[in-house]
Amino acid sequence: MAEVEVVVVAVRDIFQDEAGRKSLFSEEYKSLSALIILDKQDMAGLAVKDGDKLLAKNDAGSIVVAARASKDDAKEAHPGLAFMCSSPWYNQLVSDDSCQGSVKATLAPTAEAITAISEIQARMKS
């Protein structure tokens, strides 16, 4: 199965922020947080389209998120560089000794369900 190595940068999004303020436990917040924005080349390399699920993993942990292609045009292509909103989902990939601003991760297509907030809560208690 195809795998791609990326640097995931934490970003802010006003819609995700608003959703989180209303409820961290809502489907809306999950759909905007468990989402990774990828360059079109990386989408092609993984053979995924918008909405397909990806397992993102590194030494800190793993998470299943939805893929979405970046809207940047070819002139601003950014293969190997991905973006996720700061959230409990992103933080699953952040180790204590790494910078919180960006992390390295390996992505691969998966049939697993997008990680639920309840699963993240259970991991913290494990």
């Binding site: 961290l24 933080n91 208690k125």
Partner: peptide, 29 residues
């Protein structure tokens, strides 16, 4: 603040294993 939402998983997990007193108007992790 909501440290279990905002901090790296290892740190959040370490905190979650201690007795937490949460003073917060709203539900959080």
């Amino acid at each position: 603040s909501d440290p279990l939402s905002e901090l790296p998983i290892g740190t959040a997990r370490a905190l979650a294993h201690q007795p937490i007193i949460a003073i917060d108007p709203r539900r959080s992790l």
